[in-house]
Nucleic acid binder design. Structure first.
Lengths: 347, 347
DNA sequence: CTGAAAGCGCTAACAG
DNA sequence: CTGTTAGCGCTTTCAG
């Protein structure tokens, strides 16, 4: 016969319990099929062992959803082991008010400890929600860099390294006149990927022409789209082609470029090589299959989970975890057309 | 001055409160910034206003993840309004033990009312977990038909109608010799989609040749894959082509078919037309863009959410909700090659 | 190392 | 319609 207090201590490991009683209690638990009530535990200790995954209301693309769920799965891989569960919150319905609602809601919920930590995915710069989270010192990790100096721990893939790799794979094939297709530099990721391209070029002593930087336009997320990419490349093709390869911001935009290219009668990779970024599932299924930068999203989620766990346990964590990426060579990259190789590319 | 009980009654609408005290209490709540504690509420009433979304451990494809998150978002659209939140549970890490763990865990959790309802996505036939859920009378809805007679409420897209539509779009273009590419009939969805194809043919008085049914092989989920589709069509092309169009089980398999076709020197849609199913985001981004059957996954999630809500409130619900799909005509479908039109297709 | 006691903040009879 | 009275099943001092 032991007191509930002892059982509690045993279950939570919150204090020493003698070898003997431990055995007895465990056996009794086994026999009675006793399982502690989460509801009561949460209530009594004033915290719920729950992590909030906040889904932005804006990004409704299935594209993104794939990433999000993969991240959740990665998070769960590590959080489940630590007995945390994941609660999803989204403001899908109120695209307008989401951020405000989420902010208000989350601070209240936080006060009540309805969740112990939070993970935000791909926030935009100067996100008021993140600022609120930082200010309230809510354990949080953001996936996809928020800002280089923010007071949150961040987890991201190596975007700079990725496009550098992509560009280098092209120069290795003999390309010297390489274009970059991407959105304006509105986010960290946006600048990073462009920077990687520039770095690779610089290492080869290549000075990029202005005309090589193909920048999409549009409102909000539109700049990341297939259509924007297509339009941009289409427009670029109205003047004589002065590059033999293209590094695209992501796979979707790579496909947009390929569409414009093929409509202009240009063949990939014979006339121009294309490299994407993300390695979405269909990258290997399109024809020609897309050479691209691969990132392990689930692992990214795991990293985020581990970081959050450390935070929750009050342990030290790196402020920024950068996950390496790799290049997958498929069919959209090849040596440059022979005619182009001999062309003078100084401007 | 009122008693806590009155406040509780007001908040939950569990009993009448006079107009006057209501006003007073609301104002006080406002001033004090009072928000009821979910933790305490859940504990006291022995239920948590939480819905469990169970993610299968097997399907690790990003493909599927996109669907899953979209469903979650749809669920959340309706559940959030009813003040339910969504908890995600997956057994990703223990591919082996997932079902068992999930089963054991969920029954315990259910006993403690850690969740009030559950939604399962795309279960396989004779899923022990579902059986357990049914047996314990846990409010549940399954997305993607489980079985025609199971004692759970189910929500699904109109798979039969989808492939029927796809096939009809082909006959309308003049095609008469139409193949179907799909996995063996291992699941409801698998039989349904094949059936729609057969129905459309029957309505036109066309008797399909055996050779028109292209069935993939492989273990488990492999039969749904790009590779399996590619292999199967590749093999089919070793004999003279006796069809001018192909209905694929899904977009991924359609792409697999297109790849095999193009490798055999056949042009889509000039030589053969192809229709997919799902309308994945990239369907419109590939070249040629894929004609396919569109389904609104988020809406599917909303349907599921509404159904579950009804269950939770003890209201009546349809046992089966079938959501209509639509055909999206893009570039992979065209009139059959003229030579083929005049060919005799009786066997 | 273990028991006793108090209470987390609500809800749910039960009276009035 | 509203107040009173008990807990819900844990965790957590505080003693011993």
């Amino acid at each position: 016969m032991v007191s509930p207090a002892t059982v509690s201590r045993l279950i939570n490991g919150s204090a020493q319990v003698s070898r003997e009683t431990e055995r007895a209690v465990r056996q009794a638990m086994q026999e009675l099929g006793y399982v502690p009530s989460r509801l009561a535990q949460s209530f009594a200790r004033g915290s719920s062992r729950t992590v909030l995954f906040l889904v932005d209301g804006e990004s409704e693309s299935m594209q993104n959803n794939s990433f999000l769920m993969t991240i959740v799965l990665g998070l769960n891989d590590v959080l489940a082991d630590a007995d945390y569960s994941i609660r999803i919150m989204s403001g899908h319905q109120t695209v307008e008010g989401i951020r405000k609602n989420a902010m208000q809601w989350s601070t209240e919920a936080w006060r009540r400890r309805e969740f112990d930590g939070i993970v935000l995915s791909n926030p935009t710069t100067n996100d008021p929600l993140i600022e609120a989270v930082i200010e309230r010192k809510i354990p949080a990790v953001v996936i996809g860099r928020y800002s280089r100096v923010a007071g949150v721990v961040q987890v991201d893939v190596d975007n700079v390294g990725g496009t550098r790799l992509a560009t280098q794979s092209l120069t290795a094939l003999g390309h010297r006149r390489i274009a970059f297709l991407g959105p304006p530099e509105v986010l960290t990721v946006t600048s990073d990927r462009r920077q990687g391209y520039l770095e690779a070029l610089a290492r080869m002593g290549i000075k990029p022409l202005n005309a090589w930087i193909l920048e999409t336009d549009g409102v909000d997320l539109e700049v990341f789209s297939f259509e924007a990419a297509r339009r941009t490349v289409e427009k670029a093709l109205t003047t004589p082609l002065d590059w033999t390869a293209l590094v695209a911001f992501n796979d979707e935009m790579a496909l947009g470029a390929m569409r414009a290219l093929s409509e202009a009668g240009l063949k990939v990779p014979e006339d121009v090589s294309v490299v994407g970024f993300d390695d979405l599932p269909y990258a290997r299924m399109v024809t020609p299959s897309l050479s691209t930068v691969h990132q392990d999203i689930q692992q990214l989620g795991q990293h985020a989970g581990r970081a959050l766990l450390a935070l929750l346990r009050g342990q030290a964590t790196a402020d920024l975890t950068i996950q390496t990426v790799s290049l997958v060579n498929r069919e959209t990259t090849a040596t440059p057309p022979t005619s182009a190789e001999t062309v003078d590319f100084s401007s």
